[in-house]
Design a binder for these strands. Structure first.
Length: 843
RNA sequence: GCGGAAGUGGUGAAAUGGCAAACACACCAGCCUUAGGAGCUGGCGCCCAAAAGGCUUGCGGGUUCAAGUCCCGCCUUCCGCACCA
């Protein structure tokens, strides 16, 4: 009875044993220093927010990274595989309100819990480099970078309209507004408020951030496209229209200055300063403008901007076209945005769809000034928006192509001083102020005499006070801590007030991966030499939801650090992989859908190996993954078969004769010899290892890697009798089982460690060399060739491997079925693809 | 509206232009008994009683000796962007 239990694969016991062993060996997953003679490989998974619970999306993300890291170790690389915590942020404050737990305590407890879960999963992180962004040892460097950016003129403060989430009671960056709602509160509409804010000048890098995308060919095209759209570069012209009866000018931005002779009105945004001016002396206009503004706000908040019906009112004022001197009405329109371009446009109804719609509605003149190159004679269907035409009704510019006219008009504007060529970006500067407690204090001091004064480096870190009452009232919580607020001005020594806003948490995650390379440095954020050894990251892995936020900020930060002379690389990550979502019952796993599967449950029932391996087996990593518990059970049963087949024959594999003939299973004869089963099994083995290596290095289809291991194990199982009887030689058994375990190691590290030991091997399987495949042994000696007649499959013939076209053709023509089908017919042509197929063209 | 990805058995999926459905899950039949979330054997796209045969990768065309794969048009689903002047 007692022995029987041992015949069962028991993941709980095996995994517990190895957890203890690994815990006793903290250097197991440590990278070698930069002096290592192995090639470096930096594999990184996006650091999680410490919510306290891993979810399946994390498990999938980390299973992918871990399989890669382990395989790279086995292939001889010096691997850096770190993990950390994106530990600042609002949930800690909410938890404090709810449970009366200090944010720091709550966060650290969550980190401890999630770390336990990660350890339980057997993830190969070097915890010596662990980083938690909420600790002063980390966030002091956020402050340090902030000061460097102040010096570089990359920080400024301005009062501006900002996105305000009433739920978070704080400001959001543009990137954090999703469909008009808060990215953390999908149902909470974002409001616009006027506030003094700190901004980072990310737009200084707009062009470089855009250009760099072309070189990031290791990034998914999807992410690059999203970033391009977000940066939104647009080439055009700025032109000053005159304001009738005033020396003032109205500057408009247009990408189609060639259509300017067709401008029949000028449209201003409701928030345009001139509109305010007009409205001041015109109560009726004021009322109308407010209505337009309200419509615009509503549409923006509903995320339905494109669908809003265009409205506008004439202001009664007129603008003067600087090229023609023509006088056109000035309107205010609800479809004009103040925060793009100049907040003013020239309206050319004949050549712009929106302007056309507007003009049609209000009976504004529609004047064609571009004649399409095609259908020169017939009436043009307006609006005609293509640039494939020539100018008409445009004075001296008539007959020019659109491109020629744009150039000439720009030159003329520059010459006469009423305009110029201009490139504008949709990307806005990064507002980093947050009126929250649990974040990095912004290291600035407000002095009544000296103004804004940076905190000197030697006074860093500006420590976030820990004893603080979290309340729900608005405004920065730090403002209610006198010990924090009251400061001495570093410049004049007088009494001053400390800045009470904290930094956006995306600052934390913009550079954390550099800190990993030198995580305990107390002098500088990281040692440049060490960082240069590891950077750029060879493979970054995470969810596509960070395509714009985190990934654009990180690129900016890297360029900024490069310009500080701290690093040499222009981009943080060479390759980026975005894994698919974890789905259950047709929907993304989420608490609100009630379809969450707990990783702890899975690990408890099936073990960490089975849980991780299922996450890799059920779909290729870039696709969405449908979580089916039966599938996990299936993988667990498979691991049981592996366990049985290896333990059953382990004695033979490590027998004296097997070792003597083939230490490590490596020196076996390199030509296929032995009894047919042995030849067949070794062939399958070498085919499997070739396939896995290929799928691993090439296209990252871990699901087919796992399937290949399953096929191998199925063959071993089918040959159980021959293995038991000794028909297969001991050295061959040794090679088979050892290699199987090595191939399994990146996917099921616990079982691999256990079986590696079972096979009598010392040392970590992680440090054993990755199996190489011998093409000679992998080669089939007979292959099946499908024979088609007119493209239809008729039969399959066997020919010796390496048969030439002639031999294959002969075999095909000799086949019974083929002969009966071709009898009495004319075989017009025979196409032979050696090793692949034969097709007979029969008439 | 624009851009991207995807559409293959009951399910997850596989297939350098060359035998569609590997590997699994579920299901069915049988064996085993320590009655388990265990193990083993076999079956499992559709039509046909079976065999023979035929049909089959969202729909319609095309290229090719040969198309799930390449090209054109359409449909559906998901994702991103969306008055960006």
């Amino acid at each position: 009875m007692a022995d029987e239990k041992e015949l069962r694969y028991d993941p709980a016991t095996i995994e517990q044993k190895w957890l203890e062993r690994w815990a006793a060996d903290p250097k197991l997953y440590a990278a070698e220093p930069a002096t290592s003679n192995r090639p470096k490989y930096y594999v990184l998974e996006m650091l999680p927010y410490p919510s306290g619970q891993l979810h399946m999306g994390h498990v999938r993300n980390y299973a992918i990274g871990d399989a890669l890291a382990r395989q790279m170790w086995m292939r001889g690389y010096n691997v850096l595989h770190p993990m950390g915590w994106d530990a600042f942020g609002l949930p800690a404050e909410n938890a404090a309100l709810k449970n009366n737990t200090p944010p720091r305590e709550w966060t650290l407890a969550n980190i401890a819990a999630m770390k336990r879960q990660m350890l339980r999963l057997g993830l190969s992180y070097d915890w010596a480099t662990e980083v938690a962004t909420c600790l002063p040892e980390y966030y002091r460097w956020n402050q340090w970078f902030f000061l460097r950016m102040v010096e570089k003129g990359l920080v400024y403060r301005k009062k501006s309209k900002v996105n305000w989430c009433p739920e978070c009671a704080t400001v959001l960056a543009n990137e954090q507004v999703v469909n008009g709602c808060c990215w953390r509160h999908e149902d909470t509409l974002v409001e616009q408020r006027d506030l003094e804010q700190w901004f980072l000048r990310i737009t200084a890098y707009a062009q470089e951030l855009l250009d760099g995308l072309d070189k990031l060919d290791g990034w998914p095209e999807k992410v690059r496209t999203m970033q391009r759209n977000w940066i939104g570069r647009s080439e055009g012209t700025e032109v000053d229209f005159g304001l009738e009866g005033s020396p003032k000018k109205i500057r408009v931005f247009t990408t189609r200055v060639d259509t300017i002779f067709g401008a029949t009105s000028v449209q201003l945004a409701p928030e345009h300063p001139l509109i305010k001016e007009f409205a001041a002396s015109d109560a009726k206009l004021k009322e109308q403008v407010e209505k337009l503004l309200e419509e615009q706000r509503k549409a923006r908040e509903e995320g339905d901007v494109g669908a809003i019906e265009k409205h506008g009112v004439p202001t009664g004022r007129f603008a003067i076209n600087p090229y023609s001197g023509e006088r056109v009405q000035i309107w205010v329109g609800n479809y004009i945005l103040m925060d793009y371009g100049t907040g003013a446009i020239m309206s050319v109804p004949a050549h712009d769809e929106r302007d056309f719609e507007f003009a049609t509605k209000y009976g504004i003149e529609i004047r064609q000034v571009i004649q399409p190159v095609q259908d020169k004679d017939g009436a043009t269907l307006l609006p005609f928006c293509s640039e494939d035409g020539v100018l008409v009704n445009s004075g001296e510019y008539d007959g020019k192509t659109c491109a020629q006219a744009q150039k000439l008009l720009q030159e003329s504007a520059t010459l006469q001083g009423f305009g110029e060529a201009k490139v504008i970006f949709r990307l806005k500067d990064w507002g980093v102020s947050r009126q929250r407690y649990w974040g990095t204090p912004i290291p600035m001091i407000h002095c009544e005499r000296c103004g804004l004064v940076p905190v000197p480096d030697e006074q860093l870190p500006v420590i976030l006070p820990e004893r603080i009452e979290i309340t729900q009232q608005g405004g920065s919580p730090l403002g209610r801590v006198p010990d924090f607020v009251n400061a001495t001005c570093p410049r004049c020594g007088g009494a001053a007030r400390r800045e009470t806003d904290t930094m956006d948490t995306f600052v934390d995650s913009s550079w954390y991966f550099y800190r990993y390379t030198d995580a305990r440095n107390t002098k500088v954020p990281f040692d440049p030499v060490t960082a240069q050894y590891w950077f750029p990251i060879d493979q970054y892995i995470g969810g596509v939801e960070h395509a714009i936020l985190h990934l654009i900020y990180s690129r900016f930060w890297t360029k900024m650090m490069r310009d500080l002379g701290m690093i040499k690389n222009d981009e943080p990550a060479q390759r980026l992989f975005t894994q698919g979502m974890v789905i259950k019952d047709g929907a993304k796993m989420s608490k609100s859908k009630g379809n969450v599967v707990s990783p702890d449950d899975m690990v408890a029932r099936y073990g960490a190996d089975a849980t991780r391996m299922y996450a890799l087996f059920a779909a290729p990593p870039d696709r969405d993954l449908d979580w089916q518990e039966d599938g996990v059970a299936g993988v667990s049963r498979f691991l049981g078969r592996v366990w049985r087949v290896v333990t059953k024959h382990a004695q033979l594999a490590k027998s004296a004769s097997a070792r003597a003939a083939a230490p490590n299973g490596r020196d076996l004869r390199r030509t296929p010899e032995g009894n047919p089963t042995e030849v067949k099994l070794r062939r399958k083995l070498h085919q499997t290892s070739a396939k896995i290596t290929q799928d691993f290095t090439g296209r990252w289809h871990f699901n087919t890697c796992v399937a290949a291991i399953m096929e191998l194990v199925n063959e071993l199982q089918n040959a159980d009798a021959q293995l038991t009887s000794g028909e297969v030689s001991a050295p061959a058994v040794g090679e088979l089982l050892r290699t199987l375990v090595l191939l399994l190691a990146p996917f099921a590290p616990f079982l691999a460690a256990e079986l590696w030991e079972e096979l009598g091997e010392d040392g970590a399987v992680l440090r054993a060399p990755w199996p190489t495949s011998d093409p000679e042994l992998a080669k089939e000696d007979e292959i099946e060739i499908p024979v088609q007649i007119n493209g239809k499959l008729v039969n399959v013939v066997k020919v010796p491997a390496g048969s030439d076209a002639k031999g294959i053709e002969a075999a095909a023509l000799a086949d019974e079925k083929v002969r009966s089908r071709t009898a009495g017919k004319n075989v017009a042509k025979v196409i032979v693809v050696p090793g692949r197929a034969v097709n007979l063209v029969v008439k």
